[in-house]
C-alpha cells in the first residue's frame, strides 16, 4: 500500500471546505499489520474509505496492491476485505449464515465453494453456534465477529479494519483482538484503525499516528513509545505554579494541567525525574505522587491540540 500526498476535502455549503486529509504519506509493507492511530476526526476512516475505493481522493496518489484505487477500483476491490464495524452494515433480520452466504456470492463464490468457505469462516470466528441467529439479536461483540468474518470471506490480500473494538466491552474487545492476532495477522496485510495505543502495540508491527488529517508520527510502536513518550509522571497534590515554572526551566519536563488545580509533570528519563524531584523537595513541595508514564500520555501529547471533532 502506497499513499503519496493524499488530500481529501469535503465541501460545506456556505462555509470553508473541511480538510479531512492533508498531504498524507503512508507506506505499508505486504504481510504486516499496520495501525492507524488518532482521535475522532483525525482522518482514519476517510483514509480507509479511499483505500477501499468507496471515496475518491481530492488529490494525491493511492496505490493498493499495485493498483490505483481511484482509476482502477475494480482491480482493488477483488483483493481487499473491509470491516467498517459497528451496529450497522449487515442485514439485521437475516441470520448470520444468510448474511455471509449473500456476501460470499457478491465476492464471486458460488455453490459448494461458498458453502464450505462460509462454514469454515464461521468456525474460525466462533460463529457456528450463532449461525441461525438473526444478526439483530446479536450483541455488538458478536456483530463485530460477523463483520470480521465477512471481511475475510474472499481471502483478501489486504484487510481494512476500521476500529474493530470500538464500543465493545473489555471481554468482547479482547476476543476481537485475539481473532485479529491469531486468525488474521500473517495471512494478509492488515490495516487497523484504533484509538487505543495499547491495542496498536499488541497487534501492529508498525503504526502511523494521525491528527487533524495529518500524519504526526510513524514507525514501530515500541520505538515510538521509547523515544518520545514520558517514562515517568509526578502529580502535585496542591498547585505550585512558581515551582513548576522553575522546574521546567531547569529540567527536561513538561507540565500538563490534568484537571482543575492538578498539575502533572512528565519526564522522559529517570535522570530528569530525579532532578525534578530534587527541585520540588528543595522548594519545600512534598505532596506529590510519582507514577510511570503511559502510552496514553504520549498519545494525548501528540494529538492534544488536534483533539476531538477537529
Amino acid at each position: 500500500m502506497d499513499v503519496r500526498g493524499l488530500t481529501r476535502t469535503f465541501r460545506r455549503p456556505g462555509r470553508p471546505d473541511r480538510i479531512a486529509l492533508d498531504a498524507v504519506e503512508l507506506a505499508v509493507t505486504v504481510g504486516t499489520t499496520h495501525g492507524l492511530l488518532g482521535p475522532n476526526g483525525a482522518g482514519k476512516t476517510t483514509l480507509c474509505k479511499i483505500l477501499s475505493t468507496v471515496l475518491l481522493p481530492t488529490s494525491g496518489e493511492v496505490r493498493v496492491l499495485g493498483h490505483d484505487a481511484a482509476r482502477d477500483p475494480r482491480a482493488v476491490r477483488s483483493q481487499i476485505g473491509i470491516a467498517f464495524g459497528g451496529e450497522r452494515g449487515l442485514y439485521g433480520r437475516l441470520t448470520v449464515e444468510q448474511n455471509l452466504r449473500y456476501w460470499a456470492a457478491l465476492l464471486g463464490l458460488g455453490g459448494r465453494q461458498a458453502r464450505s468457505r462460509v462454514a469454515l469462516t464461521m468456525e474460525r470466528f466462533g460463529l457456528r453456534d450463532r449461525a441461525r441467529d438473526r444478526v439483530e439479536t446479536l450483541s455488538r461483540g458478536w456483530k463485530q465477529r460477523v463483520h470480521l468474518a465477512r471481511a475475510v470471506l474472499g481471502e483478501p490480500q489486504l484487510l481494512i479494519l476500521d476500529e474493530p473494538t470500538a464500543g465493545l466491552d473489555p471481554v468482547a474487545a479482547r476476543a476481537v483482538r485475539q481473532i485479529v492476532s491469531d486468525e488474521l495477522a500473517g495471512t494478509c496485510t492488515v490495516l487497523l484503525t484504533t484509538h487505543d495505543l495499547r491495542e496498536a502495540e499488541l497487534l501492529c508491527s508498525t503504526v502511523t499516528v494521525m491528527g487533524g488529517g495529518r500524519v504526526l508520527a510513524a514507525g514501530n510502536p515500541a520505538e515510538l513509545a521509547l523515544t518520545d513518550r514520558p517514562t515517568h509522571t509526578v502529580v502535585l497534590a496542591t498547585p505550585a505554579p512558581a515551582v513548576v515554572e522553575r522546574l521546567c526551566a531547569s529540567v527536561r519536563a513538561t507540565a500538563v494541567e490534568v484537571s482543575s488545580g492538578r498539575t502533572e509533570l512528565r519526564f522522559t528519563s529517570s535522570t530528569d525525574l530525579q532532578q525534578g524531584i530534587a527541585v520540588l523537595l528543595s522548594d519545600g513541595v512534598v505532596g506529590f505522587t510519582v507514577g510511570e508514564g503511559s502510552l496514553e500520555d504520549y498519545y494525548v501529547d501528540l494529538v492534544g491540540s488536534r483533539g476531538v471533532g477537529e
Partner: peptide
C-alpha cells in the same frame, strides 16, 4: 441508511445484477 451500501460498493460484484 443501514450502512450496507459502502461494503456493497467495495465488492467486485456487478451491482446491476444485484
Amino acid at each position: 441508511s443501514r450502512g450496507v451500501l459502502e461494503p456493497l460498493a467495495a465488492t467486485p460484484a456487478p451491482l446491476v445484477a444485484l
